[in-house]
Simulated scan of single mutants.
Amino acid sequence: MERDRDKNRKILEKIRGIEIHEYKSGLSVEEAERLYGVKAIKLASNENPYGPTPKVYDALRNFSFFNVYPKEIPELKQALADYLGVEESRIVLGAGSDGVMDSIFKMFVDKGDEVIIPIPTFSYYHTLSSIYSARVINVERREDFGIDVDAILNAVSNKTKLIFICSPNNPTGNSERFEDVKAIVESVDCAVFIDEAYAEFADENLLKLSDYENVIISRTFSKAFGLANLRIGYAVMDEELVKYYKAVSPPFPVSTIAQLCALQCLGDLEYMRDCVEKIKAERERLFRELKKRGIKAFPSQANFLFTKSPIKASEFVLELIKRGVIVRDCSNFLGCDEFSVRVSVGKPEENDAFLRALDDLLANL
């Protein structure tokens, strides 16, 4: 069966004329138990450890229309417009940020078109580029992981259709300077996709750039709002782009129950902001504790820390799993080295468990 899958993939790659890069998520708690026989905590996927507002469960209990196709709930887009301070007519929904990005590729990218991706960054941009047979132009980031504006602009050609900018960036955690991104937006004739999945954890955002006709800003309910399992994201874009987005988007992309739960989250912003503040406080504590232990960690504006492990990341992550903690090996992210590790910020007791496991690992090196 595995041989057949490999054969089919190779046939598809030959037909499309481009290698397909599969997106691989981190190890799950269930997989850790099955493979290593340990009860583990997961600090690998940048999830909100506190979950969504309790009001979400009221929506779940009161919902019974599982047999009918979903429709967009007008109240959700109005609530989003109020939350963001933008026109409702410029908001679209998708099955998470990933679903939004898939529709954006349908809108802009044909086989052989070019996509510019500053690396290291979220690897799903490369996955989609390979699926849509695009030619990827990777642009190295600066030493502080900020985007290199000149290098990006020098990489633009008449075949460039999309430029990706993730802020705060995954996996490095840094936010981009508004003026840097603005300079790119104003200098190119292609679309600029700004991924703000972690915007709620940052001190500043790039939302004002959505006023430009060539900018799409994507956000999600998966992170700060704690709805990762329901797969609901959204984007803000020019009204003309909205028409094309709706034309290429699959029918019924977001379930009614996901929309109702998202609406409950927007109705309880105090809960979300309280979660964010607790996570940010723990993020800073973890940063200090890692520094005390001689582990290189980089300042973050997200709900995770990018670190350099003292041994190869693959070995480091495996040793932590054996000690009951799952973190993310980032050595396979383009632009990352073999010591790159990302640690999601959990609850205080989860972070303490990580630090204990780390201390034990370091003591046995």
Rank of each mutant, 00 (worst) to 15 (best):
K39A: 14
R9V: 00
K182Y: 04
G346N: 01
I194M: 07
E72C: 10
L35H: 05
D144T: 06
D274K: 15
G96K: 13
V109P: 06
C275T: 02
F164P: 01
Y36Q: 08
S133A: 12
S133W: 00
S340N: 11
V236G: 02
E176S: 09
A313T: 01
G335N: 10
I119M: 12
Y245L: 10
A151V: 06
A134N: 00
L320W: 07
I119N: 06
R288T: 10
I147C: 04
N154C: 07
E204D: 14
C330R: 03
I279D: 02
F306K: 02
S314I: 08
S130V: 00
D352M: 10
I117S: 00
D4I: 15
L358I: 07
I217L: 15
K291M: 13
R323T: 04
P168T: 02
L207T: 09
Y244G: 09
M1H: 15
K308D: 02
A32S: 02
K161I: 10
S28C: 06
I257H: 01
A313R: 05
T220G: 02
R342M: 15
L230T: 01
A363M: 15
S123Q: 05
P299G: 08
M101H: 14
S314W: 01
F316A: 00
G173V: 01
S314Q: 12
F252S: 13
V68R: 14
I163T: 09
A235R: 00
D268L: 06
S64T: 11
A32W: 05
F201Q: 06
G233M: 03
G324V: 09
E282V: 07
K42C: 14
S130E: 01
L320S: 09
K182C: 11
S331Y: 04
I116R: 02
T256R: 07
A228W: 08
A44Q: 06
L365K: 12
P118I: 04
K71C: 14
N8H: 13
T307I: 13
L334K: 04
N364E: 13
S97D: 11
V86Q: 00
N158Q: 14
S344D: 06
G346Y: 03
I104T: 09
L260A: 01
F193Q: 05
L162K: 05
A95R: 04
N8Y: 13
D180A: 11
F122K: 01
A357F: 03
V327M: 03
D238L: 08
L206Q: 05
K308G: 09
E72M: 10
I41N: 01
S249A: 12
A191W: 06
D6C: 15
D203G: 14
Q301A: 12
D148G: 07
R283Y: 05
R323A: 07
E176W: 03
S130H: 03
K312D: 13
E284C: 07
I194F: 07
A302T: 10
L43W: 07
D58F: 14
D4A: 15
D329C: 05
